[in-house]
Design a protein around this nucleic acid. Structure first.
Length: 646
DNA sequence: GTCGTTTCAGGGAC
DNA sequence: CGTCCCTGAAACGA
């Protein structure tokens, strides 16, 4: 090639764009590596280019991105990407020099962590036109900053998948400083305590069993106390379900992490589930026909055992749950719920009718035989005669993990018909035709709808990499203006996005000003963040000394007025499904926290994403007048424990 | 990606 | 109360 051609500005621009694309792909790969539990979110367009991104940046917000009645914000996601691309470049050097392969493994943490992988360096800001403007606002907590900067070095020694900083480090706790210094913090102790070993296995040995029981009893006591002190348990069944689910997930992650160290990571879901069951950490123990308190239609589950601990479907393996005849004092068994794994159901798009195959006759350990009218099959037959309601759980492929399924609670059905049929292996099976009760909220139908939408771009884009996508959609909520939701299911703990915008000094910002309508103010973490610590006692670990009082206010405001991303559309809710965490990109002295959003619970598709804005007024625990208190806004979140304003 | 193998648990029935 | 047995799914490797 002619050397002079290399100086052609068009070629340069092209190369630059190609390079950005390559970086984008690499970034996706990296994000896949580091995100929690292989569950990546963050949508990155396959045809990313910087010019497109800057076009979006320059475009006024809320304009010209409407497609097919839906406001698409794909471009803004690319802004997200750009903001992280450059930090990735930085961390690349670090990754190469890093001798510990563990560093690249997915982060699985019990307590909220602050991943510091993307070593963002303010120095690079001048080299690239960043879409996220991170400005020095002021130097603060100079003594604490030293502690912070020493933390990542320490973390490197620990067998942590990612360098991680606990919240307590981002929010230094002056009142506890003498007792909870960095030295005391052991997220993943090198020296494994005896009690830190794997959770007690089910065992038939008498002596072992006794010891285990005693241990479990003591755990139960301390845990119940903890749960009682947790405000949400008294607030209603949905909060209880939330607590149980959160605990399960944090426990599962921790077990996975501990098992990984021992090179034996198998069925952490079952281990976590069993541990919780043994400690009575479950709800809706008594089987009931009809709705389960706290579980809504459309709720999603990523493990069968999750449905056991919330009482939606008790059997760990079997697909049909039924009430035992003798327990009810009657001479018939009745079905309670079924799980349709998708093997036999009819393939058409009718979301109201389900043809379900009975159980039995298909054992791999025994000879196959005809199904008998017993157990679940009998229960379903009786329920058909009685015209009883059956809870139905349907399943779908996890779009982010090919080998796993997602279970969707689809509400109540009635059995209309039943007949015998021949299976492929020649043996006869029972078939049941179920029809969904009318007037129920959308369940599986939402999934079918999204499936169709997702098919469209796939036809348009050819040889496109099947990366991890999270398709965001900005939608009109009605009374609360624009809101944000996702077409894809989101796992608890998954990374959602960063709050992009100008960082401003809170002290010099009047939040009552109208121009700060789109602004993030780092106020207090909801107490719900602390729930991620609840499972720690089950593994007999000391949970971190993170309390709501210890979380200080971050003195920053991020304005998304002139530049921003989808995060600006996140609305407030007093019962949010997202939480934010300040993330230290860099590890030098010039560190500025970035605000990252993570899913607090499993979020079904098309559910509005919200976080707790905290309060604009005087935060709880502050006596007297708070200097930065603003006028309160009325809250329209509509949750049962709404505070009324924020 | 697909197939086969291994391993795990709750709870009804007795 | 203890034990058997029935029930698939998650994870991993070939």
């Amino acid at each position: 090639m002619d050397a002079s051609a290399l100086n052609d500005p068009r070629l340069k621009a092209l190369m630059e764009e190609e390079r950005t694309k390559a970086l984008a792909n690499e970034f996706v790969a990296k994000l896949t590596d580091v995100c929690w539990d292989k569950c990546i979110t963050g949508s990155i367009g396959s045809s990313f280019s910087r010019s497109e991104a800057s076009r979006f940046q320059q475009a006024p917000p809320d304009t010209n991105l409407e497609i097919d009645g839906r406001l698409m914000v794909e471009y803004s996601l690319r802004c997200d990407l750009v903001s992280l691309l450059f930090t990735m470049e930085n961390s690349k050097v670090e990754a190469e020099t890093d001798v510990q392969p563990l560093e690249r493994k997915p982060l699985r943490s019990l307590a909220p962590m602050l991943p510091t992988t993307f070593g963002y360096d303010v120095e690079t800001q001048s080299a690239y036109p960043m879409l996220v403007f991170v400005m020095p606002f002021r130097r603060c907590f100079s003594s604490e900053r030293r502690q912070q900067s020493s933390a990542p070095m320490k973390m490197k020694q620990a067998p942590v998948p990612l360098k991680a900083t606990p919240i307590s480090m981002a929010f230094p706790v002056p009142q506890h400083e003498h007792e909870t210094s960095d030295e005391d913090y052991e997220p993943f102790p090198n020296q494994k305590k005896p009690t830190l070993q794997k959770p007690p296995k089910r065992t038939r040995q008498v002596g072992d069993c006794d010891a285990g029981n005693i241990k479990r009893r003591s755990i139960r006591r301390s845990l119940n106390k903890d749960l009682v002190s947790c405000p949400s348990t008294s607030e209603g069944p949905s909060e209880s379900v939330e607590v149980i689910m959160t605990m399960f997930d944090s426990l599962r992650r921790r077990i996975l992490q501990l098992d990984e160290k021992e090179d034996a990571c198998r069925r952490a879901d079952l281990k976590a589930g069993t541990l919780m069951m043994q400690n009575g950490l479950r709800i809706n123990n008594l089987k009931i026909i009809g709705p389960v308190p706290g579980v809504e239609i459309g709720d999603i589950f990523f493990f069968r055992i999750e449905m056991c601990i919330v009482g939606l479907h008790a059997p760990a393996m079997a697909g049909i749950d039924y009430i035992c005849a003798k327990n009810v004092g009657k001479d018939e068994t009745l079905a309670v719920s079924i799980i349709s794994s998708g093997g036999y159901e009819n393939d058409d798009d009718d979301t109201d009718v389900l043809v379900y195959t009975g159980q039995g006759g298909n054992s791999r350990h025994k000879e196959k035989h005809d199904q008998k009218l017993e157990r679940g099959n009998l229960a379903l037959m009786n329920s058909m005669k009685k015209k009883n309601l059956i809870r139905v759980v349907r399943s779908a492929q996890d779009p982010f993990c090919n080998s796993s399924k997602i279970y969707i609670y689809d509400g109540l059905y009635k059995i209309e018909d039943s007949w015998m049929d021949k299976a492929k292996n020649g043996f006869s099976v029972f078939k049941y035709k179920l029809r969904r009760e009318p007037g129920q909220p959308d369940g599986i139908s939402v999934w079918k709808m999204i499936e169709k939408w997702n098919r469209i771009p796939q036809q348009e884009i050819t040889v496109s990499q099947k990366g991890a996508y999270l398709n965001f959609e900005v939608f009109w909520t009605g009374d609360r203006g624009w809101g944000l939701r996702s077409w894809d299911p989101i796992r608890a703990g998954a990374f959602i996005c960063e709050y992009a915008g100008h960082v401003m000094d809170e002290l010099h910002t009047n939040m009552d000003d109208k121009e700060h309508e789109y602004a993030f103010q780092a106020s207090w973490f909801g107490y719900k963040v602390l729930k991620w610590n609840l499972g720690a006692e089950l593994l007999e670990e000391v949970s971190g000394n993170v309390t709501t009082e210890s979380l200080k206010k971050l003195p920053i405001v991020i304005s998304a007025k002139d530049s921003g991303n989808v995060a600006r559309f996140l609305n407030h809710s007093c019962s949010p499904n997202l939480l934010w965490q300040p993330v230290q990109y860099d590890h030098g002295d010039d560190s500025y926290p970035h605000i990252m959003f993570f899913a607090m619970k499993h979020i079904p598709p098309m559910t509005e994403l919200t976080y707790d804005y905290g309060t604009r007024g005087t935060p709880p625990g502050v006596k007297g007048e708070f200097p930065n208190a603003c006028k309160l806004k009325p809250c329209l979140c509509g949750s049962t424990n709404c505070r009324g304003s924020f």
